[in-house]
Design a protein around this nucleic acid. Structure first.
Lengths: 223, 223, 223, 223
DNA sequence: AATGAATGAGCGTTCATTCAT
DNA sequence: GATGAATGAACGCTCATTCAT
């Protein structure tokens, strides 16, 4: 696909040292893509190494020349994918000149990327509560990266004056990520029949304005 | 859909009919609790039936007197748990007299329940992308119930005039659930070190008012 | 006659001593009949003690008050059944006044009894190569009883002059039993759709006359 | 019916296609032979896959590289064996020039083969009432092949005039097979102490001439 | 006597991983 | 590097048998 854009700086794990020049062998990527395809269809646990090998057109043993073990395939996939995706997030965020546009661009890009790569999207969900500690850590790291971008945008918005200053930042960023994830989950569970990207604007609207009716006095009961 | 409803009053599966007085045999509950404890710690797939049996203090075979198979333990757990929890959700929602209070009560109760039963909370996450179709269906059914409550509240709020009328309901309800889930996930991943319930009010505030700075608009209508 | 050999008059095995007066409790028979019904339908190995208990309307544990173990059910069934059946064989054989009629009566009665009690017939086949040594022994004993009757008839026929004197008795008796068994097997495998008894006369005809054409000179090549 | 024909030239099931030259891998045969040995000694149900693996000198899992499951071992064994044996039957039948010789050759060969391969003979009995439908079907197919050969011989004999024309063919063929089987069973049950092959001629004599005393009729026509 | 919940040894099968070629 | 046959630990599940009631 867009193999050109991806530059892995160091795939150390335990791979043979041959590909030292940073030349990712084509077989490595083939396995990665095959794995995600298989994982997406059947879930991580239901997928066997043999199936992945078959899908990739290599022998079972070959997998272990490139990956430490089955878990490592997942880990490496997201090492590879996250870099691509976050680069794009960053680009789109930087492109906008105010924080609301930045947020809109981030969310839109997020939905675009997940819609474009449905297998990745599905596998990403699989990772929510992974058994393997490494995968767990990685998932955390990715969340953190995302949350950091949001934080940055929000702080900027507060400086600009477009966003409320009395925000509990730790909460707000999770609130936004959670909402986006939820929309993606729904889409995945629905069989991905509809278009995801158009949800971006209504979502942003909710983030910014909330659901409360500001035209009237709030009744805000406290229970 | 709801035929498998997790709110089964009588769990029959394969169990003898002894529990005629509605008294669920204590061994059944012991296994259920043991299972959830084990699942929470190691994840569903990494847990073995033997471990559960050991934790429950029964023989392996005994499990199969009460449960059809390993998956069924999960299914029955949520049949049992969801009944309890949703009853409480309903009570707290009904207790409030306006929709914002209802929403606040729902979210607060949600956080309370998950904080109270951390194992349940953790296992609930395990279910996000389950392999077993029954579990998947059940998870869907539970989500639907939750989303329906939210819908009901929102519609009421629109009638009251406290909530915006121009809301895309299908999006809003997922937006709210997603945000709450996200907060819970973060808490779980953090090792559950902090108190979850106090997040309810700031969350509600975000739902209602959004993150946008409305004072600016009211005062100057900038941008 | 020989019934005493394997037709244990007193089922001692390990049964409670209550039924000392030879009064076979009705529950004992109920289990026996249930067992054969289940065995016939599913085969011995595929049948569980629970299924038998259910069919008999007793508790699983009750089976063990009457039978040492699962194998013992089979053993006792044939102890019980063989006595009945062989008594009838004996009657019909004695009824005839010449050996050919005796043989005809034996075979006809054999087919009648097996047709009447299809479950027994099916289970008897199950026993051909039993795993349990006791069952094996019993099956052997039953075969022997049958073969002894045939022997007796043949010897009588030879005395009468109706049967060839140059017969290898050990072979002839197996030849007859085997042929009858084969006819019964075919019937069982066919789903028992047709009437078994009418096969008796043609069979006897084959036994007596053979398949050779006596009207012409035999060509009897020797290879 | 014959789609599952046990005369499969290439056993593919799940095995890799290595054996391209028709060279069945020796491990495959080793397992087959080990299995039959174990089955013969303990019966199919009492035999475990582990025992077979041990006997064959391979790991348990290796069995499943060559066989779909435990049942499949039995199925494949007879696919393999029946091909050999029936080829020999056919040869010996064709060798003879009249039907009585053909029958004699068939029966003699049958006894020879079963005597030669006692394990096969024993396992063949195991199959009489198999639990696995595939095995059942296979057993049926083998019986049918045998019965068809007999039919063919008998019809030829009737044309020749050496065999009676008033024969119920469906009965006669089973009568012959049953008698041979019975002789083999007896031999197996006896511990295979004696020589089976010499029974062929007396058996044929019985088939042809029957047990009736025809001289009496010819001489005096008594009774 | 009768029950049936409880047991736990035992089995078939899977599959991640290794290693000789 | 690449292969894929071989491995064997591990697991879910069954069911004959026991025993407290």
């Amino acid at each position: 696909m867009n193999e050109h854009s991806f530059i892995r700086t160091k795939q150390v794990s335990r791979r043979s040292l041959i590909e030292t020049k940073g030349k990712t062998p084509e077989k490595y990527l083939r396995i990665l893509e095959a794995a995600v395809k298989v994982f997406a269809k059947q879930g991580f646990h239901q997928s066997t190494v043999s199936q992945i090998a078959k899908e990739a057109g290599v022998a079972d043993g070959t997998i272990y020349l490139y990956f430490k073990n089955k878990d490592d395939i997942l880990v490496q996939f997201f090492s590879y994918k996250a870099k691509q995706v976050f680069t794009r997030f960053r680009e789109d965020v930087d492109k906008a000149d105010n924080s609301i546009s930045k947020l809109r661009n981030l969310v839109r890009r997020h939905l675009e990327e997940f819609q474009r790569d449905k297998d990745m999207a599905a596998v990403y969900q699989t990772m929510v509560y992974p058994d393997c500690p490494l995968v767990k850590e990685q998932r955390k790291a990715m969340s953190k990266m995302y949350l950091d971008i949001i934080s940055e945008i929000i702080e900027k918005g507060q400086e600009e004056g477009t966003l409320r200053k009395d925000l509990y930042l730790g909460l707000v960023k999770r609130f936004i990520l959670g909402a986006v994830d939820s929309v993606i989950n729904t889409w995945l569970n629905s069989g991905r029949k509809y278009d995801l990207v158009p949800m971006a604007d209504p979502l942003i609207d909710l983030f910014i304005r909330g659901i409360g009716n500001t035209e009237e006095k709030q009744v805000a009961g406290s229970r």
